[in-house]
Design a protein around this nucleic acid. Sequence first.
RNA 1: GGCGCGGUACCCAAGUGGUAAGGGAGAGGUCUGCAAAACCUUUAUGCGCCGGUUCGAAUCCGGCCCGCGCCUCCA
Length: 483
Amino acid sequence: MGLKVYNTLTRQKEEFTPLHEGFVGMYVCGPTVYSHSHIGHGKSYVSFDVIVRYLRYLGYKVLYVQNITDVGHLLDDGEDRILKQSKADRIHPMQVAEIFARSYFEDMDKLGAVRADISPRATGHITEQIELTQQLVEKGFAYEANGSVYFDVRKFADYGKLSGRNLNDMMEGTRVESRSEKRHPADFALWKKAEPEHIMRWPSPWGEGFPGWHVECSAMSMKYLGESFDIHGGGLDNQFPHHECEIAQSVSATNKPFVKYWMHNNLVTVAGQKMSKSLGNFVTLKDAFKKYDPLVVRFFILQSHYRSTLDFSDEALNGARSGLEKLVNTLRNVHAEIAKAEAEKRPETREIDLQAHRTRYRDAMDDDFNTPQAIAELFDVAKDVNQALNSYKKISASELQSVAKFFQELGVEVLGILAKEPSLGVSADGNIQVELIQLLIDLRNEVRQQKLWALSDLIRDGLKKAGITIEDKKDGTVWKKTT
RNA sequence: GGCGCGGUACCCAAGUGGUAAGGGAGAGGUCUGCAAAACCUUUAUGCGCCGGUUCGAAUCCGGCCCGCGCCUCCA
């Protein structure tokens, strides 16, 4: 059974077969950099990160492109988001873009999202956007009006196909467009004339102006991935109008299919309502990281399916923390046990059916990237492992290493929810703090021998306050940093 | 109003025809000086409600109730 992907275009799961064997071209709509990212952004980019990682795990060579929008994304009142922020902060718009682009990368790095291979910026691709707009004008799909250029949606028969709507339905219930320069209310800007006070402006065949929001994604995706490519991803809220417009522009310009698989992640909710900047119910990632380890946030996100909504609450996040800790503890114990097994030269064992677990894990991921089920499989392995470690069976070093490899590949490399190196907290690495902690543990074990429990607990509590948790095992005391 | 999605235990959340995954929390137990960790047992005769199809439905069909998203910027 091969990989199946839910395609928004056909509204069903389809067998995944890339346009070019062994190669996947993938574009994901990136952030508009005018403020810090929130949990919702985290869900989107972590979701697509796992998709990229899994495709690579399957052996595909993936070219992953994700844009940075730093111009042209207009608000209701026609003001550019970035310009608005720059006025509020009294700094140059490109400073705004730079500050929040860095903030975005910082947050995503913490979440363990692998960086895109190419992160093109809209302002760096003005030429391409003008060229695309020009093509559309020449072919009659777009028209100039008063220094701006609009796409004529009535010229594109499939407009609305992706989002399942038609122009007539859209006419009704839509606010009457007062701007008379458009021929149809749904027509969208490819190029906008810059008013005199508009700072971000570029020369064009239609005078000074700036590109519309939708055109950047068409221009940049096709530049780096070709006129037709495999996967285009983004948040569900970008399905219309953004992605609809991208299809209209790209197909009209090239007369070729644009994207084979459209993928949309669902949104993060708070008390059932969408987390968004306009509602003001958002939690920035930076704030979340003050309370929760970034990997806990990542784990929380991946415990639900990317196409499901995910309800954010402290209760749920705390639950995720405890759950992830269980996996981390297990992996740490496995690594500790490996050292013992090697020292004891234990004979070969086969206690855990890793192959069966791996198959179930892959079946889950092959089914449209079902990460919750894949994670459940990791927990099942953890249970098997802990049962074995709890019993008096002596698992061999090589079997333990297979378990460690299992977690390394499927938990670290594909899902990215486990850190590369579990902190064992049992061996000194020359670090004086480690030596001191070990000294305290030895001291405590000495007083425990003498049954001086109060003194023993004083040391344990003191270490706990210092962020060190200790566990007394059958064959010795281990410690770890408190999460 | 149009289009779409969802309602599964105390919380989060898989499951789309074969008799309810997983995690957290709670309860009891094993282990332990006590903790911690881990393990064991336990917690939905039932998956919004009402009908229907079927040997069999959380899953399919119809109706209803509720929530949400998009249609205007949003990951």
